[in-house]
Computed example of a mutant assay.
Amino acid sequence: MWEEKNQTFVKDFILLGLLHQNQYGFLFLTLILIIFMAAITGNTVLILLIRFEIRLHTPMYFLLSHLSFMDILHISNIVPKMASNFISGKNSISFAGCGVQIFFSLIFLGSECLLLSAMSYDRYVAICRPLHYPILMNHRISVLLAAGCWLVGTINSTIHTTYVLHLPFCGTRAIDHFFCEVPAMLKLSCVDTSHYEGGINVSGVVFLLTPFSIILASYHQILRTVLHIKSMEAQKKAFSTCSSHLVVVIMYYGPCIFTYMRPRSYHTPGQDKVLAILYTILTPMLNPIIYSLRNKDVLCALKKVLGKALVHRN
């Protein structure tokens, strides 16, 4: 048993990856790298705008800056390793490297789920209870919400990563995925993990179902309030904003719920890879577009910064 445990900690894993070594694989990798650069650029620009534009120093944009920071770290935790493996043709990843991917992926995944619900609460208070907004949602509360999201996400990740890395892995070390993810790792274990899967379901309720329910309830109240607004233009704007936000939320929570709350026997590598693309690669690119570039305040701040840059250059 000790020898089996020792081998678990020593041997490298093989990531079978997402792409095949052919022309279509190179084209798909190019597309992924373009999405990666767009996500990094869009979220970085948003963070800098929020940092230096005083009009954006509000609880909503403070939480949004944390969302952008999480997205940058999340996609950076996965895409560079996937690209380097494809280019080099070496699909191995060390035991420690796999542990790092699991640890940070779970932090960003869990923290972002909680943060999105905190952002929906902020919008609920701003629209449905505007007179109480300075009391219910001020800078101090937004700092506590953001810190709580990071802390709870880190604690959850530490527990799950520690457990998964102490499982004995027998036989093949090939992970049929493009990064180390808990459901894919469980398939390699040679012991019964049914009890642990119950723990994953508990985490799923805390980090997925509960925040998702809070978001839906918040936007339900927001839409009810908006319907009482007499201005059709204001209604149209609110419906457009809420619908775009909900599309991103569903794209994020839906695949996560489907991935982490299904029994291990129902998982297939193809499905898991497609679902993971949505919440690890596509969503980090879409978040700055949906949450900011369609926002009048952010666009004004961007035009102001670009105008100053052009004047300074001239």
Rank of each mutant, 00 (worst) to 15 (best):
L131Q: 07
P255S: 10
L145V: 05
H228K: 09
C180Q: 12
I135Y: 02
S65Y: 11
V274A: 15
C180F: 15
T158E: 03
K236R: 15
L18Q: 02
T259I: 12
Q221Y: 11
H312M: 07
G148T: 09
S68Q: 04
L209R: 04
C149F: 00
D192Y: 07
F28M: 08
E197F: 14
I135K: 04
F62Q: 01
R123H: 06
I215W: 03
A146C: 15
S292P: 13
K5W: 09
F28S: 15
L227W: 04
S94C: 08
V45A: 06
H20S: 12
G270L: 11
V10I: 12
K273L: 14
S157Y: 03
N6S: 08
I277A: 03
E233T: 13
K11A: 10
T259G: 04
Y279F: 15
F169V: 01
H132T: 10
S92Y: 13
L278P: 02
L18Y: 02
L186Y: 05
G99A: 04
S203C: 09
H66R: 03
I93F: 03
A83P: 02
N43A: 09
L275Y: 08
G42M: 02
L46F: 08
Y219H: 08
I214V: 04
I93S: 05
Q23M: 10
L64K: 01
N287D: 14
Y279W: 15
P288R: 10
I175L: 09
H245G: 00
I289N: 00
G25Q: 07
L33G: 00
M261Q: 06
N22F: 12
L19W: 13
L282R: 15
H139W: 10
I34E: 01
F9S: 06
